[in-house]
Design a protein around this nucleic acid. Sequence first.
DNA 1: GTCTATAAAAGGATAGAC
DNA 2: GTCTATCCTTTTATAGAC
Lengths: 210, 210
Amino acid sequence: MVKNKQDKNQDTEELILKAANRVFEKKGYAGARMQEIADEAGINKALLHYYFRSKEKLFDRIFREAFSQFWPSIEKVTQGGMAGIRDLIKAVIDGYTEILAQRPYLPAFVVGELNRSPERIKELLLASGIKPDKIIKIVQDAIDNGEVVNMDPRELLVNIIALSIFPFIARPLVSSMFWKSKGEYDSFLQKRKETVYEFICRSILVNPDQ
Amino acid sequence: MVKNKQDKNQDTEELILKAANRVFEKKGYAGARMQEIADEAGINKALLHYYFRSKEKLFDRIFREAFSQFWPSIEKVTQGGMAGIRDLIKAVIDGYTEILAQRPYLPAFVVGELNRSPERIKELLLASGIKPDKIIKIVQDAIDNGEVVNMDPRELLVNIIALSIFPFIARPLVSSMFWKSKGEYDSFLQKRKETVYEFICRSILVNPDQ
DNA sequence: GTCTATAAAAGGATAGAC
DNA sequence: GTCTATCCTTTTATAGAC
């Protein structure tokens, strides 16, 4: 069966987006080159502009997707309405572990670009439909009912995210600083899924063994 | 008293380095413009090249300094030879709190650029005179003598650094996600110096109150 | 829709006067 | 040591043929 034009459009656009994603994610907006994106996609520059008009617009498209991917299963948990604090922590860690295994450059990319244009954040957060208040409430409830030690719920959330993401953001640095080889660091990251959960629980749970 | 030529050299070079630091630190190598650095320094592009020949060389100079600044008082502690685990943790947190208050873009800059040229790390680590093994040993000792729960000492170090740095690396994101204003976030970062120490101690110390 | 060729602009680097 | 003017390469973007 031969593809019709509609399919071809879809394919090429998809191809470009995939390529642009790889290049932007690794090199950032300023470091990326339209030529390199075209090469990766197996087409030429002119076609890039035909589909997305400008580097800026192409980047915008890529970045929005990246930003939304940046929040893994936090939503999945809050969706249900009432989730336990342990579920929340596990969901965040597991979610990041999963997405970061596939897209290790994602957090450095998102965070790096946001540093350069912080004015976009408000809008991006709105568009992504993320509800920080809901998540904060889950933590606050756990504190109120004595499950978790008294602390600023936002701080706990920051800590969870920090511990999940940082080893990926600073991967080359941390890896060559403390580990013998890339492979060993990878296996550390695997085990870490459990150890970081325990690290957090030891710190915050009033009754760890309950 | 009139300045002689020697002074003038020094001043201009200093001026350029200051300007280059601001621009590179904020925009990264790819995003920085020689023109902007010249403007910030109050001179013209030609003079930049007169002093540093190329963008690459100027950047290299800036980055080396930034990298060395990235490791605050860890050294200060290990210098003494035998430091307690509590001292180590406090030293790292305090050190970062101090340097990051002055140079909030530093960690994102260092980590970001290292992601793009990881091959440089080995050499930079050597040149900086940092001794990861010494630091690991301090933690290992604390584990061996039963002060700290059993865990990979490297993981604890990663966690300490992560918790210290992440709120700065991801400042705009975290700030507008969980806080009402920039000012409130700043005051959170201040208080955090203590709370993060407690967070860590609760998790790792066998006898927290000792 | 896709290509080649080329325009147009930006940015790094140098020549040469003072 | 510092400046103006200019070169040259890179990179984004468009025109026009197929």
